[in-house]
Amino acid sequence: MSDDIYKEIILDHYRNPRNKGKLTDPDISAQDNNPVCGDRISIDITLKDNVVSDIKFDGEGCAISQSSASILTDMLMDKTVDELSKFTKDELLEELGTPSLGPARIKCALLSLKVLKIGTYQYLGTELPEDPEN
C-alpha cells in the first residue's frame, strides 16, 4: 500500500467534508468505532415519506474513514430506506476510486457503511447481519 490510495476525491472530501454535523430528532441514528485505530463515525438521517431528506455524519479519524463517510452521505440523499438497507460496499468503494485498499485500511473505508447499516436495521427492527458492511 502507498499514497496511491489517496485519490483526489478522497483528499477533497477529507479537506472539505460534506454533510458534517448532527441532526435534531433524526429518524435513523447510529454510531460505531474501529477499535484498532480509534476512528469514530456517527450518522443521523431524517426521513420524509420513507426517503432520506437530510443526512449528516460526525466523527474523527483518518482521511480514509472521514472522506468515505462524507462521500457516502452524499450518495444517500433521496434514497429510500429499502435502498439504504441494500446499499453495497462495492458502490461505495467504486465511488472512492480505490479498489485496492488492502486489509489494513478497508475497515477504515467501510466504517461509515457499517454505521449506516446499524442505524437502518435498527430503524427497520430487523436483525443486523454478522458483517453488515460486507
Binding site: S2, Y6, G38, D39, G61, C62, A63, R105, C108
Partner: peptide, 22 residues
Amino acid sequence: DFHPHDIASILDGESIAVRAGH
C-alpha cells in the same frame, strides 16, 4: 492533525515501516 493511519500508509509507500494506532 494528520491521522496516524494516513501517516503510516503514506510512509509505507516509501517502504518505511512504522506503527500507527493505540
